[in-house]
Simulated assay, not measured.
Amino acid sequence: MTFTWLKGHGTENDFVLLPDHDGRVHGDLDPGFVAVLCHRRRGIGADGVMRVIRADAAGITDAGEAEWFMDYRNADGSLSEMCGNGIRVFVRHLIDEGLVDASAPIPVATRDGVKVIEEAGDRLRVDMGTFVVGEHSDVSVPGHRWPAREVHTGNPHAVVFVGSVDEAGPLTEAPGFDRTVYPEGVNVEFVERRGERHVGMRVHERGSGETRSCGTGACAVGLATALADEVRPTPDAPVRYRVDVPGGTVQVEWTADDHLILEGPAVIVARGEMEWIA
Rank of each mutant, 00 (worst) to 15 (best):
M1R: 13
T2M: 11
F3H: 06
F3V: 02
T4A: 09
L6C: 06
G8Q: 00
E12W: 01
D14W: 01
L18A: 01
R24Y: 01
H26E: 05
H26V: 00
G32D: 11
A35P: 02
V36P: 01
L37K: 06
H39C: 14
R40N: 08
G43L: 02
G48L: 04
G48S: 09
R51Y: 06
I53L: 04
I53N: 03
A55K: 01
A57L: 10
G64P: 07
G64Q: 09
E67C: 09
F69M: 11
F69G: 00
A75Y: 02
G77C: 08
S78Q: 08
L79Y: 13
S80P: 08
E81C: 06
M82E: 02
C83H: 08
C83S: 15
V89K: 01
F90I: 10
R92K: 14
L94V: 10
D96M: 02
L99C: 10
A102F: 06
I106Y: 02
V108N: 02
V108S: 04
A109E: 04
T110N: 11
T110E: 10
T110K: 11
R111Y: 10
R111H: 13
G113I: 08
G113E: 09
G113W: 05
K115Q: 12
V116P: 00
A120P: 06
G121C: 11
L124K: 09
R125I: 12
G129R: 10
F131D: 08
V132D: 14
E135V: 13
E135S: 14
H136W: 13
H136K: 15
S137W: 05
D138Q: 13
V139W: 02
V141F: 04
P142I: 05
H144C: 09
R145P: 03
V151D: 01
H152N: 13
N155C: 09
A158W: 00
V159D: 03
D178S: 12
R179Y: 12
R179S: 14
T180V: 13
V181G: 05
V186I: 11
V186P: 03
F190S: 06
V191S: 06
R193L: 11
R194Q: 12
G195D: 12
E196R: 15
E196V: 15
R197N: 14
H198G: 07
M201Q: 11
V203E: 00
H204E: 03
G207D: 03
G209W: 09
E210T: 02
E210F: 09
T211I: 09
R212E: 07
S213T: 01
T216N: 04
G217L: 08
L223T: 04
L223V: 07
L223E: 04
A224P: 04
L227N: 03
A228Q: 12
V231C: 07
T234I: 10
A237L: 14
A237K: 15
P238I: 10
R240G: 02
R240M: 13
V243I: 15
D244P: 05
D244Q: 14
V245H: 05
V250P: 00
Q251T: 15
E253P: 03
W254C: 06
W254G: 00
W254S: 06
A256N: 07
D257I: 13
D258E: 15
D258V: 07
H259K: 08
H259F: 10
L262M: 10
E263I: 15
A266R: 02
I268H: 05
I268Y: 08
I268F: 10
V269H: 07
V269C: 12
A270W: 11
A278C: 11
